[in-house]
Design a protein around this nucleic acid. Sequence first.
DNA 1: TAATATCCTACCAATTTAGTAGGGGATATT
DNA 2: AATATCCCCTACTAAATTGGTAGGATATTA
Lengths: 138, 138
Amino acid sequence: MLSKKTRYAFRALSYLGENYGKGPILISDISKAKKIPLKFLENILNELKKADLLESKKGKGGGYSLKVSPKKINLATVIRVINGPIALLPCVSLNFYERCEDCDETYCGIRKVMTITRDATLKILEKKTLHDIIFASI
Amino acid sequence: MLSKKTRYAFRALSYLGENYGKGPILISDISKAKKIPLKFLENILNELKKADLLESKKGKGGGYSLKVSPKKINLATVIRVINGPIALLPCVSLNFYERCEDCDETYCGIRKVMTITRDATLKILEKKTLHDIIFASI
DNA sequence: TAATATCCTACCAATTTAGTAGGGGATATT
DNA sequence: AATATCCCCTACTAAATTGGTAGGATATTA
């Protein structure tokens, strides 16, 4: 399950995507529009910025904006930044790999299935972008 | 990510699958063979029993055994019993559905993607069985 | 009735989640 | 230069979840 924080991230990014090209957007605007607790949102946007998905500007006229077009931000990237691994087991994660104790990976049946599952999931989440979720309703 | 408990469940079920048809197996045997803390395993097996995947017998000569053949126990079922929802959002879960607040499901783009993801995942996890993970190495 | 083995209730420490509080620092305007 | 604006950073906290442990109750067999 994705955390509430991740769902907030998607909603905030959608708002920024809808306003892409219009200059910096205030945290407080996003907070109001998407009903996300302000200080929590501050934290989320900052993490997305550190992950290079957003850029920010301080002072009057400042705010956050997408660093690249909504078509270039895929959902797998967002989930990894805010939620963590996409795979169901650490030993099949591409970005957060951790070895299993007491398990020979070559012969582990669970690992084989979880690898297939990971690939199927990634095929979708890496293809779908912010643009897709913004304009899904049309 | 699947919990440690779920991974224990898979390992315990694999052991029971390997010994299918041999009568009741002791919790302590599974615990030793698969290196799972005894009392924790007790709890896990009991939950699997309540979910109708195992049957148990008390007293001397007792223990746990699979209620049906390893070919009839799919991984999605096990995950749902021990880990919970398979979907990435409650609003797209088939077995643990919960409505989103502040979201029109008909037009929610995130929901659409997460539905596709869920279906792709289930297609694999509902098809793969205990038998598959036991004999994956061959 | 004694031994065996599961079942049940309750507890516990560590970690994660979902925030809140408050000030610091950069920027723009007046 | 002063001030208002707005992001940035550190620290704290309550509640829930995770990963167990302890101990006795209950059922079964010999």
